[in-house]
Amino acid sequence: MYLSAAIGFVVDVNIPEILNEAPNHSLHAKDIASAAGCDTSHVSRVLRYLATRHIFREVTPDVFANNKLSSSLLKGNGKSLGELQAKPLEKYENSGNAAFVGHLIGEGLKSSSSMIEFLKSSGKAGHSPFSMAWGTEKRLWDWYAEPDNGWRFGRFVAAMQFVAQTYKDSIFQNAFNWKSLKSTDVIVDVGGNMGTVSLAIAKMFPETKFVIQDLPPVIEGAKPFWQANFPEAIENGRVKLEAHDFFQPQPVKGAAVYFCRFIIQDWPDSECIKILKRIREAAGPSSKLILFEIGIPYACADPTRYTADVEQRSAPYPLIPNLGKGGGMNPTNVDMQMLNLLNGQGRNIRQFIELGEATNWKLESVKNDELSIFTFSAA
Rank of each mutant, 00 (worst) to 15 (best):
A202C: 14
K203E: 14
K203I: 06
K203N: 11
F205I: 10
P206F: 07
T208W: 06
K209H: 15
K209V: 00
F210D: 02
V211L: 00
V211Q: 04
Q213H: 07
D214K: 13
D214C: 10
L215I: 13
V218F: 09
I219N: 07
E220P: 04
E220Y: 01
A222S: 15
K223W: 01
K223N: 03
P224K: 02
W226Q: 01
Q227Y: 03
Q227I: 04
A228Q: 13
A228D: 14
N229M: 01
E232Q: 14
A233H: 05
I234G: 00
N236E: 09
R238I: 06
R238T: 06
L241W: 04
A243P: 08
H244F: 08
D245I: 02
V252Q: 15
V257A: 03
V257W: 07
Y258L: 03
Y258D: 02
F259T: 05
R261T: 11
F262Q: 13
F262E: 06
I263H: 11
Q265Y: 10
D266I: 12
P268K: 11
E271K: 07
E271N: 03
I273L: 01
L276Y: 00
L276W: 01
R280C: 13
E281R: 00
A282G: 09
A283T: 00
G284K: 08
P285Y: 04
S286W: 07
S287I: 00
L289E: 02
I290Y: 04
I290H: 03
E293F: 10
G295H: 04
G295I: 05
I296V: 14
I296T: 13
P297S: 11
C300G: 06
C300R: 13
A301T: 13
A301L: 11
D302M: 06
D302F: 09
D302Y: 04
R305G: 05
R305Q: 14
Y306C: 03
D309Q: 12
V310W: 07
Q312K: 15
Q312Y: 13
S314D: 13
A315F: 09
P316C: 08
P316M: 10
P318D: 05
L319H: 11
I320V: 12
P321K: 08
G324W: 00
G328K: 02
G328Y: 09
M329R: 12
N330S: 11
V334T: 11
V334Q: 12
D335T: 11
D335L: 06
Q337W: 12
L339V: 01
N343H: 15
N343T: 04
